[in-house]
Design a protein around this nucleic acid. Structure first.
Lengths: 345, 345
DNA sequence: TTGTAGGCGTTATCAC
DNA sequence: GTGATAACGCCTACAA
């Protein structure tokens, strides 16, 4: 019973117990291994008995395949990022690929540090949001030879592969819809520090749509740092008149502040959508159960994850169906017009 | 310019360029390395120029330190799990430890598979929620020699270390508070398949409190699978009378369904808290901005992450402050009584 | 179907 | 302060 080796069991231990060489054990452990039924069974039984767990670091070093997909998200605490990651992870796991995660916290500096640190794990692909990158991040990525997937946007000059939608255009479209409904003095609510981000792209789309319609896009309310919360929206909603006193609609950079704004307006007896219309972005669950429910821009983050996983597999899996993934993949986006905005005369 | 070696630069390449041995490069790259200032500077400059990125798999194999902390959560799409992970990651990252994540999706079977797969990466500690485990999971964990941290509960027979609170007791306390407010026909809303989980512990706590107060705990509404959503709560709220027609309060297993229930009741003209009281669990942001705001059980998931990180560091970091972490760490929990429940006569 | 030899890229250890 | 050597545990490639 003195079976407590300090270092864990190695393949060699199993091999000796089975009376075979390490290679045979190695083969027995892989589905494609060429081993006779009998030997395999014997080995697998021993593996089980001895509680042998292969050391993947050794395997990776030897096979030059880390089994990692590095993935960056701004934050994990957001239904879209969480959904994308979950879908990505699930779509990948049947092939044994693991997702190695990093949180940029909406900072390009942190992103740079994370890229550097994740690259040490020799990921087989790297997935990251497009929110602008530092020069060095771009250099690191290019030099690394690792396939790069930029998500959530359609950058003009992608590094490698792209999966997402144009935040500018999507925001443009929603703004147009709001104008069509009769809103004229629309305000846009977004974060303070959003230069070069997707938030900025949405802001630019809003501006373009307003100006193309001959309306003024000066009602820009900028508050707090990304990600905007319900609380942020609640504060802004509570002080809406201090920002601009003629607002007839607020288009928010995300549904969270949109819900906060609605709540604050209700507290003041301002009715939505009669007095002021509200639109959000992202179709969070709370928007469907808010009273009134919130007009929003809807997209499928899980599809984003699945599509990305798919492209990765086609790119790096040996036995994959020949055709390479396309370099740009656009996912669908939809305007959901709901109770928080309505036809005006 | 023909600098495009197929395989990435290795330490040997840098060593040759610098006219030193690999060991010297290796030392120069670590803060504690014994190298002369001059050599170090020269080497670091070359590392930068040549875009050398160390291969951590090789390093791990040699040093027998993976640099990973394996962490399981039921789902990533939950503010508590996300917060815990974020705090854990941040508290660990200054030491170079990375968090390797897995999602159990509330399934002990998936948990078992994940534990097995993560163990191959030789994590230096493994962190997982206590929601019951399969026999094999427990065996794998024990045999692995890896320090185990069970979170979010105070299990009777922990495998290793524990950080959390007693879901039974916390639920018991909130139920007592509700009784004190005058509620008598309290219903408990939870998932269908929650055997052996923390949800079940909350249910048991509710039952115990009711029975100790001489009240009936038969009003158990069980609906859907974990995690309960706003939608689930909305459905139940819309059909509350079909479950039990004399309910005067609903204590929900989480804030998400609590918000759904409130929304549904409002739609039917049932007023909260006048007609029916509502309580949740977890203090989600939406509960503070709901109208009325929702009574809930509040705890700090980020602290959970920080405390866990701290214990891990004290356990595995060589230069750590001598004292071993305590095997059981209780985090604070607080009842937040808000507008959705009120004193009754 | 199985085995042998060698190396993956780093670090521990000991010598200088 | 620096270098030589030998692992670390597995897999590739080739041989039998």
């Amino acid at each position: 019973m003195e079976n407590v080796k300090k270092n864990p069991i190695t393949m060699e231990d199993v091999a000796q117990a089975a009376g075979v060489s390490r290679m045979t054990v190695s083969r027995a452990l892989r589905k494609d291994g060429l081993v006779s039924e009998r030997t395999r069974d014997r080995i697998l039984k021993l593996v089980e008995q001895m509680n042998y767990v292969p050391d993947q670091a050794a395997g990776s070093l030897s096979s030059q395949r880390s089994g990692f997909i590095a993935t960056l998200v701004p934050s994990i605490n957001n239904v879209h990022y969480a959904g994308m990651i979950q879908a990505l992870t699930e779509s990948l796991e049947s092939t044994g690929l693991q997702v190695l995660l990093g949180y940029t916290e909406y900072s390009t500096q942190r992103e740079e540090a994370l890229v550097e640190s994740l690259l040490k794990r020799r990921p087989e692909a790297i997935v990251l949001p497009y929110d602008g990158h530092t020069e060095r991040t771009i250099k690191l990525l290019k030099k690394s030879q690792v396939p790069v997937f930029q998500l959530w946007e359609m950058p003009d000059k992608p590094i490698g592969y792209t999966v997402g939608f144009s935040n500018h255009d999507v925001s443009y479209n929603m703004t147009q819809e709001l104008i069509t409904l009769g809103y004229r003095n629309i305000a846009f609510l977004c974060e303070t520090n959003d230069e070069w981000t997707r938030g900025a792209a949405r802001r630019a789309g809003f501006r373009a749509a307003m100006e193309n319609a001959g309306l003024s896009a000066h009602r820009m309310i900028r508050f707090g740092t990304p990600p905007m919360s319900i609380k942020d929206g609640h504060f802004v909603g509570s002080n809406l008149k201090q920002y601009y006193d003629d607002i007839d609609c607020v288009f928010c950079v995300s549904d969270a502040p949109a819900f906060g704004v609605i709540t604050a307006l209700k507290e003041q007896g301002i009715s939505v959508p009669e007095d002021i219309g509200i639109a959000g972005f992202g179709d969070f669950e709370v928007s469907r159960y808010s009273v009134p429910d919130i007009t929003t821009v809807k997209f499928n983050a899980q599809e984003l994850g699945r599509v990305t996983a798919n492209s990765i597999l086609r790119l790096i899996e040996p036995g994959s169906t020949g055709k390479k993934p396309s370099r740009r993949y656009a996912i669908e986006v939809e305007n959901c017009m709901r109770g928080s905005t309505s036809k005006r005369q």
